[in-house]
Nucleic acid binder design. Structure first.
Length: 471
RNA sequence: GGCGCUAUCGUCUAGUGGUUAGGACGGGGCCCUCUCAAGGCCCAGGCAGGAGUUCAAUUCUCCUUAGCGCUACCA
């Protein structure tokens, strides 16, 4: 039973790249009957904000993906320190009393990697203990094995075998001089304690993994498997950042733009992963079934947006696909919500029929409240193109007459309306198109939309007649 | 600078030592049709560059280039 975790650091909003990482973890866990853990990596007290934590929860709740266990690193600091000192006790770490940033300038322009502060690594145990006891601040560093033949290796489920000479890895910090664990220490300590067995995260951690392997080996007999995901980048090749690219990087932007969560999840999955059978539109269940690391790509994926169109066209297309193909009843709550937010009401018995009639031409939920307004309210704009239809010769008087005739009939179906309309057109000697297109214009204020006869039944008998008479 | 990862249409991707290099979005066209969508069909568009191995390289190797990541007492 796999145990996986999503471990965001709450220093911003929920980034779409983070959301995708969550999704892949979730898919893997659910497919294999595993456990999904949400862990807030909030050890950086300076930069953590409640707003950010709220944003992460907001985004995750919207996506509708759940987790089974929840932890906050800030509540587990004692454990991290304990594990750091366990490493120290094994002789695999040492105290470095060098003041912070003391040799920053020396490091710059250095040909190779900085490995450690000379002298500190080989300080005698007695002197180290004495200085510590005297209250001198120190950072606890991992004692990376040295020597030509020493290497660290691991197998990545996406990137394959990874290998690095130990001499290329610096003696990284485990504990800061204020006693707080570093990211590497806290993350690995928690992964060990929570028995995470597959770490699925962004590729930006690929090279950090060598350090993590060292910590895992120092802490336990088993180490987790790793899967690194390609990054999501902007069209300019840079990584997505709020400051540079704006709201496109935030998950809530897509929620607010009227996306269906399952459609957005579908879109995110297709960035850097492929089911390899040309499938594009997939449900959550289908994604879960198809997910595997062998389908994960190794190169970064561009989220295709521009100033004119801030949302990836493929995401929009996919949303439209889900919108029109999902069971209509599953769609109704979301539509009802956007209508209510726009001050429109959706309580009619024909609601499902109306939604089903108009959804094929919409791409976001917002379209129901904007383009769909005439179906849910009596005050709606008359578009110029629609007005032109009404201005056709005889159009207005015939439409009013149509209203009269429909009122005289008790039957009101697509077929009955069509017959009445066509009979009237024939009598008047005009093309049926005049009345057909005119009806759509009269009933919706729009020149384009569903088949006119569908519009009649969607708008309903009384309102249709009233609108015809008003032209 | 050092180390690492990556490189197929504009974008997301499939794929192979011999393929007309496949699909999707977007773009163009046609069909359908009461309009607009949807749907169907068609078109344009790609293996970063250079060597090497081979009868044959987009595919394997090397180099170059480019992008990204790491190189913190950030995560």
């Amino acid at each position: 039973m796999p145990r996986v975790r999503f471990a965001p650091s709450p220093t911003g909003y929920l980034h779409i790249g983070s959301a995708r990482t969550f999704i892949f973890n979730w898919l893997y866990a659910r497919k294999n009957n595993g456990t999904m853990i949400l862990r807030l990596d909030d050890t950086d007290v300076e930069r953590n904000t409640q707003v950010s934590i709220d944003s992460i929860f907001d985004g995750l709740h919207w996506l509708g993906l759940n987790w089974d266990e929840y932890y906050r690193q800030s509540e587990r600091l004692a454990l991290h320190k304990e594990m750091a000192y366990a490493i120290f006790a094994k002789g695999l770490a040492y105290r470095d009393f060098t003041p912070a940033h003391a040799d920053e300038e020396e490091r710059e322009g250095e040909a190779g990697p900085w490995l450690f502060n000379a002298g500190m690594r080989e300080l005698s145990a007695e002197e180290s203990d004495r200085r510590a006891a005297a209250g001198e601040p120190f950072v606890l560093r991992f004692r990376v094995p040295r020597g030509e033949n020493r290497a660290v290796k691991f197998k990545d489920s996406v990137f394959g075998d990874q290998y690095k000479k130990a001499d290329e890895i610096e003696d990284f910090a485990l504990l800061r001089s204020n006693g707080m664990p570093t990211y590497h220490m806290a993350s690995c300590a928690d992964d060990v304690d929570l028995r995470i067995d597959h770490i699925i995260r962004g590729q930006d951690h690929l090279t950090n993994t060598f350090k993590h392997v060292l910590i895992f080996e120092a802490l336990s007999e088993t180490k987790p498997k790793f899967a690194h995901l390609p990054l999501l980048i902007a069209p300019d090749g840079a990584k997505l950042s709020k400051r540079k690219h704006g709201p496109v990087v935030s998950v809530t932007t897509y929620r607010d733009a009227g996306f269906l969560p399952q459609a957005y999840i579908n879109f995110l999955c297709l960035l850097g992963w492929s089911p390899k059978n040309n499938r594009e539109q997939m449900s959550i269940a289908e994604l879960m079934e198809a997910f595997s690391f062998s389908g994960v790509n190794r190169s970064n994926a561009v989220v295709n947006f521009s100033d004119e169109d801030p949302i990836d066209p493929k995401a929009q297309w996919l949303n439209g696909q889900h919108l029109r193909s999902m069971p209509v009843n599953d769609l109704l709550p979301a539509v009802r919500a956007v209508l209510e937010a726009a001050g429109l009401s959706a309580d009619e018995p024909s609601f499902a029929f109306v939604v089903d009639t108009i959804r094929a031409r919409y791409t976001t939920l917002h379209d129901f409240a904007t383009k769909g307004r005439p179906y849910f309210a009596d005050d709606y704009p008359m578009e110029p193109a629609a007005a032109e239809r009404l201005d056709e010769p005889q159009a207005r008087e015939l439409l009013r007459e149509l209203g009269v005739r429909l009122q005289a009939q008790t039957e009101f179906t697509e077929a009955s309306v069509e017959k009445t309309l066509r009979d009237l057109a024939a009598e008047a000697g005009v093309k049926p198109g005049i009345l057909i297109n005119g009806s759509r214009a009269a009933l919706t204020g729009q020149a384009v939309g569903p088949s006119a006869f569908h519009v009649f039944t969607a708008i309903g008998r009384d309102r249709s007649i009233a609108r015809l008479k008003m032209v």
